[in-house]
Design a protein around this nucleic acid. Structure first.
Lengths: 132, 132
DNA sequence: CAAACTATTGATAATGGATCTCATGAACGC
DNA sequence: GCGTTCATGAGATCCATTATCAATAGTTTG
C-alpha cells in the first residue's frame, strides 16, 4: 500500500513548486533549507517511484547526473534546459518526431524511440558573469 | 608532445576494428583477451583524449555508462542504434540541426547544443525470435 | 649508442552519484 | 489506542570514472 508521509508530501510540493530540472542532491538540500528535511535515500526512492509512475521526466546531464522535473504535459515532449541554472522550456517538435521515425524506417529499423534534449545558456545566465 | 605507445596503438586498433559502441571496461577486457593489455586508467585516458580530439563519438546508456565509437565521418552527426545487437548507423539531419538552434534562440538561449540519438530494432534482430 | 628529458603507464586510492541494509519510526485500518 | 506493515534514514556499498605518483618507456640529443 502507498502511504502519504510528510517526506513524500514535501518532495511532491517541492517538485510542484519549481519548474526547473533538479538533481536528487539539490532537492535534498532545498528540503533541508526549507526546514522539511528528508533523508537522501528517501529523496532518491521517491523520485524513482514518481518517475516510474510517469509523473516525472528524467534526463541525464553531460556528466551523467540524473535530473528530475514535473512536467505540465503528460504527452511526449522534449526539453530546452539551461545548463547553468536548470531553467527548462518544454518543447514539442512534430517535425523531429517525423524525421526520427522516417530515418529509422529508411534503415529497416522498427520500434523506434529517440532521445532529444537541447542544452544552452539562458538569457539571465548569459548576462551574469559567473556565479551561482 | 604526443607519444605513440603500444597501449595507444592497441586501443586505436581495437576501435578501428569494431563498429559498435563499446564501454571502457569492455575495451579493457577485449584488450586483455587479445594479449595486448592496457591499464584501465590508460584506457579511460586514451578514450578521453580521442573523444576530446573529436575522433570518437560518445554516448551514455540509460544507466549512465559511457560508450565510445570511432565514426567514419568527423563532422557532427547522430546515431541510429539497434538496442539489441548494437548495430549502428550514422545519421545526419540538417533539418534537425536547424530546428534545434532555431528553437533555442526563440527562447533566448545561447551556446545551444543538442543530444539526439535514435534507438530501434534492426531488421535482423526483428526477424530473429530472441537470442544474442 | 647512451644519457637525459619528459610523456605515459598502471596499481591503487579517491570521488561521487546512486542504491542497498536494517533497525527504528510513522501511517492507517480496525 | 493497537498492531501490522510500509517508510525512513544514517551509513555501508556499489560502480563508473578520475586523480595520484613512482616507475617505465618514447624521444631527443650529444
Amino acid at each position: 500500500m502507498q502511504r502519504m508521509t510528510r517526506q513524500r508530501q514535501s518532495i511532491a510540493d517541492m517538485l510542484a513548486a519549481t519548474s526547473d530540472f533538479k538533481s536528487a542532491q539539490q532537492l535534498h538540500d532545498l528540503l533541508r533549507e526549507r526546514g522539511e528535511p528528508a533523508g537522501l535515500a528517501t529523496v532518491y526512492r521517491t523520485l524513482q517511484n514518481l518517475a516510474d509512475a510517469g509523473e516525472l521526466d528524467v534526463l541525464r546531464t553531460e556528466d551523467g547526473e540524473m535530473l528530475f522535473r514535473q512536467c505540465e504535459r503528460g504527452e511526449h515532449h522534449h526539453h530546452l534546459v539551461c545548463r547553468s541554472c536548470g531553467k527548462t522550456v518544454e518543447i514539442d517538435g512534430p517535425t523531429v518526431e517525423d524525421w526520427a521515425t522516417r530515418v529509422g524506417r529508411a534503415h529497416g529499423f522498427s520500434s523506434i524511440e529517440h532521445t532529444i534534449e537541447l542544452f544552452g545558456t539562458c538569457e539571465e545566465c548569459a548576462a551574469r558573469p559567473a556565479s551561482s
